[in-house]
Write a protein that binds this DNA or RNA. Structure first.
Lengths: 188, 188
DNA sequence: ATCATTTTGTGACGATCGTCACATGATATG
DNA sequence: CATATCATGTGACGATCGTCACAAAATGAT
């Protein structure tokens, strides 16, 4: 819980009373490795703050799993599209290690946002950061080659390279498994 | 103004009083073709609801302009990253036609959000939709070939194909101008 | 420890796409 | 109307990447 409070503070001020109100809506939830935080077809009704472990979001493209994002400690895992529109999620979110999360329930969160403008402000900030992350990620596919994309991730998000398997990383970068393997062997 | 009100209504309820409060913070602003809504290096302090015309967002990659998104009627043009963090924008937003916008000023918007939870809710919904749009766009670069990406845009966002020039569209799709030209000629 | 299963590495080959060059067509401006 | 400027089409060629096939290594289960 403390890590979440620190994270929220980094976004904006949060008074003790606001924090207490918010706390009542939170639940600690754990997921064993390979289990699902969200399955495709379900509506996403939660934000999961990751306190330990990491997850991946993927969708199925003609029988192949394509990874779209990874969520590590201090990230918020969710499918914004489904969360925002109440439509079934096209993505599945799966725990890649044993994962500990703090779950925000959408309905309860909405209620406390109505009560407390400070919490509402925090909510908006969170969303902005999630959206900004997507924006950045989309940009790397334009005018970067496979190798440049790898190096970009290596520079800015080295933890992804360190913790994610080659197979999962390759579809995230939009390249074949074999190509990623060759990029790696080339640079040693 | 009426088109904005209809758009906001499609996101969530908005009472007459909320709308009046919000209205006082809005400004109609027009941009002539080729002028800028936002220049890279500036901090983005506005959301622009596009009521007429369209814009493009691009960044400079080694002297080349790379288009990252297009904003048409009823879209909200902004750089969320800069808007959220107050950091200088890496992108430029330019009017591709004579453009009429309704400008939300960030500071004033924040003030009315504190006053009126209904407006705050709308703000969050807007952000969610913008973020969801980014999320979708990022996904098309994974496991889609150049041609598949073109066909995807053709199916889901035909207005982009119709109104955006081949040169601008190609960098948006992450392919060479010549390749896009060949994709088009192939399919007739 | 052994075997099964999954993940990663590597070679060969072909398809796709980017680059360079230049031609053609469209649009704008005086 | 003439000309300059910009956008688009097209050919040739090479680099990159994906695919298929299989080997090697790592991981997990009994």
């Amino acid at each position: 819980m403390e890590s979440l409070r620190l994270y929220l503070r980094s976004l904006s001020e949060i008074s003790d009373t606001s924090w207490e109100i918010l706390s009542t809506t939170l639940h600690m939830v754990t997921f064993a490795r390979t289990t699902y935080l969200l399955k495709s077809g379900q509506v996403c009704n939660s934000l999961f703050f990751i306190s330990k472990g990491y997850c991946r979001a993927f969708y199925d493209k003609d029988g192949q799993e394509v990874n779209t994002s990874f969520f590590f400690e201090k990230d918020i895992a969710t499918n914004l599209n489904s969360y925002a529109t109440d439509q079934p999620s096209a993505y599945t979110i799966q725990a890649c290690e044993d994962v500990t999360t703090i779950q925000f329930d959408k309905k309860k969160l909405l209620e406390v946002c109505e009560q407390d403008p400070q919490i509402a402000l925090l909510g908006r900030k969170c969303l902005q950061y999630i959206a900004a992350k997507e924006e950045k990620h989309a940009a790397i596919y334009k005018l970067m080659t496979a190798q440049e994309r790898y190096e970009y991730i290596e520079d800015l998000y080295p933890h992804i390279i360190q913790r994610v398997s080659l197979t999962h990383l390759s579809s995230y970068l939009g390249i074949a498994r074999e190509t990623l393997s060759r990029i790696r062997s080339r640079r040693m």
